[in-house]
């Protein structure tokens, strides 16, 4: 097993459950920042790409801190915001990742548009639908409620990433209450105390 495969194995359980549930579009958010949302979204997208025989589109919709866009070195590239502002065709904005069947849509110029229910609805119903799965990285609910709520009703499933032993429950309850009764998010427990020590050595070969 390669180092990359071992790394993505961390997210295999989550990806398998998403696959088994038949979700075609999923979003990852959290109550606070620092919960590991972006890592989870990226890892899940990689695992799904390996798991499914169809393309996975990873969307950076974190208007507050677009880490994925920065990781991809696409800060100045057009992206989701430009598409929502009808300033660019999706095909021209997509960046194909180095992994097979994984495409990435950066956040784009956040000043030109904000995510609205109508725009996102047409986005998800448009050419995006040609991708097998859409994985969306969202900002924390309490910090960026306005950027999360439009997605909540449109995605097949919204996941709230919580960090075991760290996230205060009252804060989580507050965040879930902000989502309202219409959206019933499910919880992804990050950094759970499950033995995964065998993955640690796998980090070295990849890094080198």
């Amino acid at each position: 097993m390669t180092g990359a495969a071992q790394l993505t194995r961390v997210f295999e359980g989550l990806a398998s459950r998403i696959d088994a549930s038949g979700f075609r579009s999923v979003g990852f958010t959290s109550a606070l920042s620092g919960e590991g949302t972006t890592t989870t979204a990226l890892g899940t997208a990689l695992s799904l790409a390996a798991l499914r025989d169809e393309t996975v589109l990873l969307v950076d919709a974190n208007w507050l801190q677009p880490s994925l866009t920065a990781d991809a070195g696409a800060e100045k590239a057009g992206g989701l915001a430009d598409h929502l502002a009808t300033r660019g065709e999706l095909a021209g904005l997509l960046r194909w990742a180095s992994r097979p069947r994984l495409a990435f849509l950066p956040v784009g110029d956040r000043a030109v548009a904000r995510p609205s229910l109508r725009a996102l609805s047409s986005f998800l119903a448009g050419k995006v639908a040609s991708h097998g799965t859409v994985v969306v990285d969202l900002p924390p609910i309490l910090a960026g409620e306005a950027f999360v709520l439009p997605w909540a009703g449109l995605l097949d499933q919204l996941f709230v990433v919580l960090r075991e032993g760290a996230t205060p429950l009252p804060v989580v309850r507050q965040a879930l209450a902000r989502l309202g009764p219409s959206a019933t998010p499910q919880i992804v427990l990050n950094r759970a105390a499950v033995a995964a020590a065998d993955l640690a050595p796998a980090l070295h070969p990849v890094r080198v």
Binding site: R17, T40, Q186, V188, L189, N190, A200
Partner: peptide, 15 residues
């Protein structure tokens, strides 16, 4: 946290 349910866990990676 009901009605929210646990969907999956992501194990902690020893790094």
């Amino acid at each position: 946290l009901a009605p929210a349910r646990l969907f999956a866990t992501v194990p902690r990676v020893g790094t």
